[in-house]
Design a protein around this nucleic acid. Structure first.
Length: 580
DNA sequence: TTTAGGG
DNA sequence: CCCTAAA
């Protein structure tokens, strides 16, 4: 089997150099092999779909632009980071091999003391390498093989993801994060996990990721749960989360981790463990970003746009809105007579009144104040979303019944609605704010960790801006996430990741309002990707940075971010609502 | 239709 | 998340 051969022949890694021999990639037999090996969650072999095959091709064929990026990154790295270069490996072309070895093929390298501290746990999980690589180190090839075959996730994306990550990130972290602390999981958790039954592991997994898994592989479960735990341990306020118990959590995600940990850490003193092991990661340097920006990123001029109509309207006097502003949108709803509707035209959004009953008055008010939709008068045909919204209305009452017992979010998490892979529920979700006394609801759906991870994976594969591709490939099952949502979320993540560098005080302040803190490892990932695929908006400032840094290589220690105004104070891209 | 960007 | 302009 070709796969076997690969593992024994690191020279032909998962990712190949641009000028490498491509014969294996284009080899029919190769594709055939992949086509046969797709494994579903149960571990049984199933025929791979066309999509999967395509994915595999993606996996094998690094997009050209990516090659260029990686080429530069890796070679750059080779100059400055001798540690990562083994003596017998020259450079240049072999950089690929080197990193491929490091990332995906030769786990044993990890045992090298020099490497271990730099190894990012997140990456290890993403790559399907578990902590065993550090400790007992079983036969690695079976480990990797089984992962690459998809036993782990039931799909092959992750394989590619890991490949991409390993290439870029080994380069990035290896070079950059000398000061970056990596949270490690105390080894006693291994034992705890080992003692757990498959069922318990399933439960832990479900709580950690909000999804069920049918995987029966204990090792696989173990390392995934450990990953959840690790994210949990990175939360600065993790101990308070633990102390307060579920009812105090603001959302499912905050809870997720905690629940997972509670399951895992029964009888242990979590706080002590956390305190002794947690340290906040600080990323240094923008070198890669600079390099990439300089050489590979074609700067596109920010496209000009005239002020939107809405902007003009909203800038005008508020009192004018109703009288003269919109003669063509009569106020229909009785609610609207009491509450000022939003100024924009909106889509009709039928509300299920039965829904309202279980929510409670304040919620009804809250929703209609901000959310009552009115017919669009200026548009010929309804938008795509319209139908999908209506389509889900029937589910809503059930959904709200569940969500109305917010204090017991646990139930929600355990409810069947959350188990499916796509997490399809309805178009709405509830956000409970601890800070506010009245539980207020946004009709937004919170992003959970697994979604964030998918987004990150998507960006790592397609780059920034290919939102439709990402949506199609990774969020096909989640109808509620549009490509625009992905874009917005990425923007938010970027902000969040940059804000990490700011003072702790600011962070704390923000956290009170933030739904949940995003794990450091994830933010780190975002930062790294952001450096590789600069967000259009940030390009200019980053380039300026580059110039500045190049001009004076003195203050490389100075945090580069704060210099530009691109990062807003708000920290999140959210719509600020004006309450009457 | 999709993407970028402002709100 | 929503909306609009631009491509």
């Amino acid at each position: 089997m070709m796969l076997e051969k690969r593992f024994q022949e690191p020279k032909h890694g998962i990712l190949m150099g641009a000028q490498e021999d491509n014969s294996m990639i284009s080899d029919k037999e190769d594709k055939l092999t992949y086509k046969c090996v797709r494994v579903d969650g149960e571990g049984s072999f199933v025929a791979a779909s066309e999509d999967n095959v395509l994915e595999v091709e993606h996996l094998l064929a690094v997009p050209d632009d990516e090659k260029i990026l990686m080429d530069d990154i890796l070679c750059f790295e080779s100059k400055d980071s001798e540690l990562l270069i083994r003596d017998d490996v020259p450079c240049s072309d072999d950089c690929y091999q080197l990193n491929t070895d490091f990332g995906a093929l030769d786990c044993n390298i990890m045992q090298d003391e020099r490497q271990e501290p730099k190894f990012d746990f997140l990456d290890s999980i993403l790559q399907g390498l578990n902590e065993d690589s550090f400790h007992d180190t079983p036969g690695f090839s079976s480990e990797c093989a089984d992962y690459l075959l998809g036993t782990g996730n039931g799909n092959l994306y992750t394989g590619e993801l890991s490949a991409c990550f390993s290439l870029k990130d080994v380069g990035a972290t290896g070079m950059l994060d000398s000061s970056e602390a990596v949270v490690s999981i105390p080894s006693q958790y291994d034992t705890v996990l080992d003692k757990m039954t498959i069922g318990e592991l399933h439960e832990a997994f479900q709580k950690a990721f909000g999804q069920e898994t049918s995987v029966k592989d204990k090792q696989w479960l173990k390392r995934h749960v450990l990953f959840g735990l690790q994210n949990c341990m990175e939360l600065e306020n993790v101990s308070s989360l633990l102390d307060n118990g579920p009812s105090s959590h603001e959302n499912e995600d905050g809870l997720l981790c905690t629940s997972g940990s509670q399951v895992l850490l029964e009888g242990k003193d979590m706080n002590d463990i956390l305190k002794s092991n947690y340290s906040e990661g600080e990323t240094t340097g923008f070198q890669i970003s600079n390099l990439v920006d300089k050489e590979n990123v074609v700067l596109t001029p920010k496209r000009q746009r005239k002020p939107t109509r809405r902007y003009i309207e909203e800038s005008s006097d508020v009192s004018c809105r109703h009288s003269s502003g919109r003669p063509d949108t009569p106020v229909n709803s009785s609610m609207d007579n009491v509450l000022q509707p939003r100024s924009q035209n909106r889509l009709i959004h039928q509300r299920n009144l039965a829904t309202a009953r279980v929510i409670g008055k304040e919620d009804i008010v809250g929703r209609s104040a901000t959310d009552t939709r009115k017919p669009r008068t200026g548009r010929g045909r309804p938008r795509k979303r319209f139908s999908s919204l209506v389509g889900h209305d029937s589910d809503e009452s059930k959904e709200y019944e569940l969500l109305s017992v917010v204090p017991k979010i646990n139930r929600v998490l355990e409810s069947p609605q959350y188990e499916s892979q796509d997490e399809e529920v309805s178009d709405d979700s509830i956000l409970v704010r601890r800070s506010g006394k009245a539980t207020r609801r946004k009709h937004h759906r919170l992003w959970n960790l697994s979604e964030v991870m998918k987004l990150i994976e998507g960006v790592s594969r397609f780059g920034v801006g290919r939102w439709t591709d990402i949506k199609r490939m990774l969020f096909a099952a989640s109808a509620h996430r549009t490509s625009v949502d992905l874009k917005d979320k990425w923007r938010n993540l970027l902000r969040a990741s940059c804000l990490q560098r700011q003072s702790k005080k600011e962070m704390e302040q923000r956290k009170k309002h933030a739904s949940y803190p995003i794990p450091q490892s994830v933010l780190r990932r975002v930062r790294e990707l952001a450096n590789i695929y600069p967000y259009p908006r940030d390009r200019k400032s980053k380039l300026a940075q580059t110039a500045a840094t190049a001009a004076s290589n003195l203050d490389s220690a100075a945090p580069p971010t704060r210099t530009n105004a691109a990062i807003s104070r708000s920290g999140r891209v959210v719509h600020r609502k004006n309450f009457v």
